[in-house]
């Protein structure tokens, strides 16, 4: 059972504001979903976790500057900005 309190705690970590109704609804839904997912505990498993479906090699390249976005393009989608800076909430 995932209680309303647990949903609230998870929502806070995930930076979501939930209404009382949503807390109630998600508590029920998540409980039934996670209950079904309990089957996973009995499932046959490999020894090592498969983080990817295929074996990947580290991908590296020479440390040489390459073409990247211009300042204008990098800023074109930010609505809150001042000059060449993106404006955010106060940090301190």
């Amino acid at each position: 059972m995932i209680t309303k309190e647990t949903v609230g705690r998870v929502a806070k970590v995930a930076r979501l504001n939930l209404t009382e109704e949503e807390l109630e609804k998600f508590s029920h839904e998540l409980s039934s979903i996670m209950e079904a997912f309990e089957e996973l505990k009995k499932a046959k498993a490999g020894k090592e976790p498969a983080f990817h479906p295929i074996v990947l090699r580290d991908s590296v390249r020479a440390d040489i500057a390459e073409h990247c976005l211009t300042e204008d393009k990098a800023l074109q989608n930010a609505e809150q900005k001042e000059g060449k800076f993106i404006k955010g909430p106060r940090a301190v």
Partner: peptide, 26 residues
């Protein structure tokens, strides 16, 4: 987001996320 965050939280990560990755290997 809620379910994914829950399954990665301390105390649940081993039972859900890591187990799921091992089941994937199988």
């Amino acid at each position: 987001i809620l379910m994914g965050t829950f399954a990665r939280m301390a105390g649940y990560r081993e039972a859900y996320y890591l187990k799921a990755l091992k089941v994937r290997a199988n």
